[in-house]
Design a protein around this nucleic acid. Structure first.
Lengths: 227, 227
DNA sequence: TCAGGATTCAAACGTTCGTTTGAAACCAAC
DNA sequence: GTTGGTTTCAAACGAACGTTTGAATCCTGA
């Protein structure tokens, strides 16, 4: 084993956390995989929670810096004009999916991250919230400027949906095997596919929210509930 | 407590599983919430795994039956003609999001289900695969008939992305609080928003992929967006 | 009324969890 | 070569886990 104990533990924890989840991954599994002593986790990190936080912070900080850097580049290029929605999507989701394509740990981490959004452990959620605060604010502002016609609430929901699509795109074959055999080995193809889908969803016509408008007189469906 | 012990355990387990995850939810938490004795789980279900399976099966079977019934209704109405993509999306995702709006257990269950897709416990995955086999086959067929121009692989990915958006739409405020304060109390609005987004993504222009993949002659959906 | 299966209950089973401990091993600086 | 701080190690801690047990209790049908 080349790297030092601390790094080996981080790598092993990353792999095992995405496999078994935050609470079901044991320190004994981690230290065994890292070829370290059980007590090494508490020596180097202090506790299991602190280790998990270190696993996230190691890559998440860098990821969000990359996102902001990409946004900065587009905005510098635009010279004050609103960005195209495609550029903003690229800066946020493109960076993420490229990191997910990085076979050297990034892929594992992004799957872990996507999995964690829907796994609301208290201490992880508060930690994620603070780690995301800046990048969320920046991208919200950019989107509002680019799409002034879209109501704020509507956009937030679409952003949320896009995060879901990204999460599933990254978790890839794990959940996808439900649908049948699929090849997820080509990151470029996945990138192109997700981008196309996201922008299609983002630019979709605004839904008619008023019930009066929604009940269009199309031909009668069977037992369709009012919605 | 009105219902019998078995039902109380199922209800309590449903609530706690979505809060803490499959492996971190303990039988002692469940039986305490259900006001039942610890041994009641093993008496009524046999084991913790069997209890979890019962929690899923109780609602998932019904959900997929509803999906197939909705598809049957649309297909009967179409008299052999291909369905509109909107109808297929409605039959699959609309039924799901309506169940998620049901405050009487359905909401809790749908959050649990969405969470479980990315939580690959072995025995749950194999169980989900068999429970989904029929409905997946039906909807794949309907989509291929409705959108013959879309390559099969492309569509499966888009379906996968849509599942991700649905999952996040249902998990709702849990993960959404990252983005800021949002109102998720109106199921009808959520339904309209998700539908609009999904159909926008489904009908997005096909991505320009590597020529090797895209080699089949596509009947001209204006392939664009250089990747 | 009472026998007998169904259900509940308190208690304990062996196992594994995260954490702690104190000594051994390592390693640069003097 | 000795020192002093850093890191590793085997062992054990109390707590909590899923499961089992056997007796107590409930409930129904004869």
């Amino acid at each position: 084993m080349e790297p030092d104990t601390r790094s080996r533990i981080l790598d092993a924890a990353e792999k095992l956390l995405v496999q078994h989840g935050l609470e079901a991954t044991t320190l004994r599994m981690i230290t065994a995989a890292a070829q370290a002593n059980l007590a090494a986790v508490n020596y180097h990190f202090g506790s299991k929670e602190a280790l998990i936080e270190a696993v996230f912070r190691r890559r998440l900080t860098w990821l969000n810096e990359q996102r902001i850097a990409a946004l900065d580049a587009f905005e510098a290029e635009a010279k004050g004009a609103p960005l195209k929605p495609r550029q903003i999507v690229e800066a946020f989701f493109g960076v993420a999916i490229r990191m997910a394509a990085d076979r050297n740990g990034g892929q594992t981490f992004m799957r872990l991250l996507g999995r964690t959004y829907t796994e609301p452990t208290d201490f992880v959620r508060t930690f994620l919230a603070e780690e995301y605060a800046e990048v969320i604010a920046r991208f919200k502002a950019a989107f509002f400027k680019a799409l002034p016609d879209v109501p704020q609430e509507e956009f937030l929901w679409r952003f949320h949906f896009m995060m879901g699509a990204l999460s599933y795109a990254i978790s890839g074959a794990d959940a996808l095997r439900l649908l049948g055999p699929i090849d997820d080995s080509d990151p470029d193809a996945l990138y192109a596919r997700l981008m196309s889908f996201l922008i299609g969803g983002l630019r979709a016509p605004l839904p008619a929210l008023l019930p009066a408008i929604q009940s269009r007189p199309v031909r009668k469906p069977r037992a369709k509930r009012a919605a």
